[in-house]
């Protein structure tokens, strides 16, 4: 009798949840995704509504990300790509611009943890980042950086925590991810320090980050100037999203301007997707692809 009673109770408890779920047709793809995310306990499950997210301000990337941007309260990894692997300057610039969006929304400082104080505060206003809201922590050991990051992620007075670290294993990254989830403060890891081959090896290991990015430079379109040297045009970045929980990988070629990122274009009104590709692609794929997306396959 006892057991039966319990079973009955369980049934009655689970029934309203089933009844509350709207019919499939009304939910649509976005709703389904959300349900799956809820089941899998992904951070973007409630990110979209309650916490908001960090957007690139670039439709093609933001639409690609589940939840429409980088989830708050989650760990994101940025690695310098190609020749920028060791200095990760593009990665640092990307993080400052992403965080600057959050600065405009509310109060709070950003904690930047690094071995050197070479982040140049005079370059930050160009990216909309207010240097008055930067706290810089200099550490000597990787372990200290991870300790400080975990501590800082518990503090809701911060709007983001950024750490430049070389080594990070799965367990450590899980701790950071959990701390970020709890407080809702976004955590950024920038891989830096050590030799290039070492760094490449370390950054290929699995970690519990929600998104993992590789950002490298690409030659810009020069502005022809007389007589000899060509002036550099808008900086071109090659962005690769190579791991994304609940989403697909992707690559983009973008340009940085004063007000934000734009799809890379040529001076002529031709989208990069059309101009910067191999010679004979199938006509259908060009028509279908959104302008500006450079497919990984080219």
């Amino acid at each position: 009798m006892e057991q039966k009673g319990i079973m009955k109770h369980d049934l009655t408890r689970s029934r309203p949840a089933l009844a509350a779920a709207p019919p499939l047709a009304a939910v649509g793809l976005a709703g389904l995704r959300r349900q799956v995310a809820l089941l899998e306990k992904l951070p973007q499950a409630n990110a979209g509504e309650t916490r908001g997210n960090l957007t690139w301000g670039l439709g093609s990337i933001d639409r690609h990300l589940p939840g429409g941007g980088l989830a708050l309260g989650a760990l994101h990894e940025f690695v310098g790509h190609g020749p920028d692997l060791e200095e990760a300057s593009l990665a640092a610039a990307a993080v400052t611009r992403l965080v600057s969006h959050r600065q405009q929304q509310g109060n709070g400082s950003t904690l930047w943890i690094a071995r050197q104080r070479d982040l140049y505060a005079r370059a930050l206003p160009e990216r909309g980042f207010d240097p008055d809201r930067l706290l810089h922590l200099r550490i000597n050991r990787n372990a200290d950086a991870l300790w400080a990051m975990e501590e800082a992620l518990r503090c809701t007075g911060l709007n983001a925590v950024v750490a430049e670290v070389s080594a990070l294993d799965l367990t450590q990254s899980r701790r950071l991810q959990l701390a970020a989830e709890k407080s809702g403060v976004p955590a950024f890891i920038i891989r830096r320090g050590g030799r290039a081959d070492q760094l490449r090896q370390l950054s290929a290991q699995p970690i519990a980050a929600v998104t993992r990015w590789r950002i490298g430079p690409a030659p810009s379109l020069g502005i022809a100037a007389l007589p000899h040297p060509t002036l550099p045009g808008a900086a071109r970045w090659h962005i690769e999203l190579w791991r994304c929980r609940g989403g697909r990988p992707g690559t983009w070629l973008i340009e940085e301007h004063e007000d934000g990122w734009r799809e890379a274009t040529f001076p002529q009104p031709v989208a990069a997707a059309l101009a910067d590709r191999s010679l004979a692609p199938p006509a259908a794929s060009v028509a279908a692809s959104e302008p500006g997306i450079k497919r990984a396959a080219g």
Binding site: S89, A93, R117, L119, A123
Partner: peptide, 9 residues
């Protein structure tokens, strides 16, 4: 004019 994000010292 633009300033570098990393200043070597």
């Amino acid at each position: 004019p633009p300033r570098p994000i990393r200043l070597l010292s």
